[in-house]
Amino acid sequence: MTAVLMANIKEAGYSKEEPILKNIHFSIARGELVGLIGPNGAGKSSTIKSLLGIIDYFDGKIEMKDYAYIPERPIFYDGLTLWEHIHFLYSTLDVDEQIFYSQVNRLLQSFQMEEAAYRYPESFSKGMQQKAMILLAFLQRSSVYIIDEPFIGLDPKVTKTLLELIQREKDRGAAILMSTHVLDTAEKICDRFLLLSNGTLIAQGTLADIRRRSQLPNGSLFV
């Protein structure tokens, strides 16, 4: 399988003197969903910042094709409605206009945001903001998706819609890295896992691989 995201993080953090991450190496192939798992403070956010090139100190190499990022805390441009965000996104992409806006309408309907599209995202609830970020990300149809805690603030119906979108992008051949604390869902949908603890990668592989290496044949990500 062709890897479209390759990470070789020797060290990274907010200063060279006190690195948070050490010796984290992994790759993600086309059509693969990989869960980034670990307790608070394990280094998940720093790993994502390293991939995005927005961490203060980094020693290593990241190889990644075009990507879309869904942050844990939604970020929008002040003074732009959701429709204006969508129009701006279209102006940055080399895509067919009719196909793009057809997809816009399908996603707005799926997330029940047709009327909200004419409002300012800063006025949205947390759940609505999260839906808007998801919509904008999946409109990009990127080779790589980096998704940080996507299920926070989503009701079961929207979670189902998100999972369907993730599966669709996997089928298209996109690689997806998803950080989440919703471990029961992660166990069901992820192809492989990266387990972080204290800034290091302590295990990676399928759930079966991790069970075998830990000698816990019936173990789960909860323990």
Rank of each mutant, 00 (worst) to 15 (best):
R211M: 06
H181R: 12
F151L: 11
L36Y: 03
N40V: 06
P150N: 06
M133N: 14
V182Y: 12
E187V: 05
E164D: 15
I146D: 08
Y77E: 13
M178V: 15
S143M: 04
I134H: 08
E114A: 05
L154D: 03
S110W: 00
E32D: 09
F222S: 14
E18A: 12
R213D: 13
S220I: 02
P121F: 09
N105L: 08
D155S: 07
R119E: 14
E11D: 09
K61V: 08
F222Q: 14
R213W: 11
N198R: 15
T81G: 10
L107D: 03
R73V: 15
G173T: 11
I9H: 03
L216I: 10
D184Y: 05
M133W: 00
I55G: 02
Y69D: 06
A117Y: 03
F222C: 00
G53P: 12
F88A: 11
D184C: 00
A208M: 09
Y145D: 06
T180K: 01
S45D: 01
D59M: 06
R172V: 06
Y101A: 06
Q103C: 00
Y118H: 14
Y69C: 05
T185A: 06
P156N: 11
S125F: 09
K61D: 15
Q112K: 15
L139F: 08
V104I: 11
T161S: 10
D171C: 00
S50R: 03
A116T: 00
Q98N: 12
S27C: 05
S46R: 01
L21M: 08
E97P: 02
T200M: 10
R192N: 14
R30F: 00
A42L: 04
R141T: 03
W83L: 12
I99N: 08
L139A: 04
L51P: 02
V34F: 06
V34Q: 04
S143C: 01
D209N: 14
I75T: 14
V158T: 15
L108E: 06
T206V: 07
F88H: 14
L183G: 10
A132S: 15
V144Q: 08
T206D: 10
T2C: 00
A3N: 15
T206H: 07
L51C: 06
F222L: 13
K131D: 05
Y57G: 05
Y120W: 01
K22E: 13
Q215C: 06
E164I: 00
R119K: 15
R106L: 14
S27V: 00
F111V: 03
L135N: 01
P217A: 08
L36A: 03
G205H: 11
I9V: 13
L194N: 04
G31S: 10
W83I: 11
L108P: 03
L207H: 12
V158K: 08
A117T: 12
C190G: 09
G38P: 07
Q215N: 15
D56C: 00
S46C: 12
G41A: 07
V158H: 11
Y69K: 08
A3L: 01
G38Q: 08
I48P: 02
E114R: 13
K22T: 13
F193S: 10
E115V: 12
E169H: 04
K61H: 13
P71K: 08
L135A: 02
A137P: 10
K188C: 00
G199W: 01
A137N: 10
Q215H: 14
N40C: 07
A186L: 04
A29Y: 07
L89S: 05
Q129P: 07
I20M: 05
S15F: 05
L108C: 08
L194Q: 04
